[in-house]
């Protein structure tokens, strides 16, 4: 944005944090145990889930309470296809998951965006998401309540060479690569022309309408991009956890990205990623104590919502700005 060229701002610590995070994730298999590597793979995909969600929440200003439906749709579609046609190239099964997510989000978006205001949109998406949850849990081809088990990690065939995703930490590195690529796409949308219009819609939808923009269509774009990327993340989770259950579509799973966004800060692109990592840390630290996880997470969320409206990243950079003596601008960044 031009303001960055003309209006030099305080030292931005985001690239440094990003570099550290990437280094940690990339080297993790060399120094951490299997359990932690597995957790890291899940966290990476949840990060993508939350970043995709924030395109609607932080950028466009829509709170959907049914995003888990798209995550589950991607996971189930690709998991089901992989079991039906085990010889299909891996990327096609993943792409199928993404395609199903795109279609489902287009349909749900078309219905839900008729009521794009506050609580009604939240409850409508909640109801539609629960509908998907119930349908998955009662469909025999999708394993009903038990879900799909034994989803294989295939061999990638590049002609000249092959990568066996079942071996070693190969699948983890695939997840890492895919997360970087998907995040980059989302980053581009957020900071580009489309992102600017979506941010404008959040701030003043009527003004945008009278600048000749079909606001509902642009909200639908945000919804579909978000749903598709979410479904791709879901598709990638299936061979990683090797079991998928209807719980992936449950509303409590839809609450996760909202939680990450608010914890990390929804007005910044990387906020939800910070939230996802902090959340995973809290949950990992309290995993053996029954009930404490909910108390810690609930308490942390409550404190953030009531006392730190900018989330962790927003608060950090406000503090950082004070430290470096420059005033940072909140908002689209």
């Amino acid at each position: 944005m031009p303001q960055q060229q003309m209006n030099p701002r305080g030292r931005d610590v985001t690239p440094i944090l990003l570099g550290i995070a990437l280094t940690v994730f990339a080297t993790l298999p060399f120094w951490a145990g299997k359990g932690l590597v597995f957790l890291a793979g899940i966290v990476l995909l949840q990060m993508v889930f939350a970043l995709a969600f924030n395109l609607m929440f932080g950028l466009t200003g829509l709170v959907s309470f049914g995003q888990a439906a798209f995550f589950a749709a991607g996971a189930y579609a690709s998991g089901w296809l992989a079991r039906m046609l085990p010889d299909l190239p891996f990327f096609l099964t993943i792409a199928f998951g993404g395609a199903v997510g795109a279609v489902l989000s287009a349909i749900i978006g078309l219905v839900a965006l008729r009521r794009a205001s506050g609580i009604y949109f939240a409850i409508l998406t909640l109801a539609l998401g629960q509908l998907v949850y119930t349908l998955i849990g009662k469909t025999t081809a999708l394993g009903r309540e038990d879900g799909l088990i034994g989803i294989a990690r295939p061999v990638l065939d590049f002609g000249v060479f092959e990568i066996n995703l079942a071996a070693g930490d190969n699948y983890y590195f695939l997840i890492l690569t895919a997360s970087v690529v998907l995040s980059a796409i989302l980053w581009w949308v957020w900071h580009g022309n489309l992102g600017r219009i979506l941010a404008a819609i959040r701030q003043e939808p009527e003004r945008v309408r009278f600048l000749g923009i079909d606001v509902r269509r642009y909200r639908e774009y945000a919804f579909i991009i978000s749903g598709t990327v979410t479904a791709l993340a879901g598709a990638l989770v299936a061979p990683w956890s090797q079991i998928i259950t209807p719980m992936l579509a449950h509303w409590s799973y839809s609450a996760l990205p909202i939680l990450f966004c608010l914890l990390g800060g929804r007005s910044r692109f990387w906020g939800p990623a910070v939230g996802a990592i902090v959340f995973a840390g809290l949950e990992h630290a309290t995993r053996t104590m029954v009930g404490v996880a909910e108390l810690v997470v609930g308490g942390a969320l409550l404190i953030v919502v009531l006392a730190m409206p900018g989330g962790i990243l927003g608060t950090l950079s406000a503090l950082g700005g004070r430290y470096f003596g420059t005033k940072r601008e909140a908002g689209h960044d």
Binding site: G291, E294, V296, G298, G299, L301, L302, V305
Partner: peptide, 8 residues
């Protein structure tokens, strides 16, 4: 968040 606290 309060619901999570209740569950905890």
């Amino acid at each position: 968040a309060v619901l999570l606290l209740c569950e905890g």
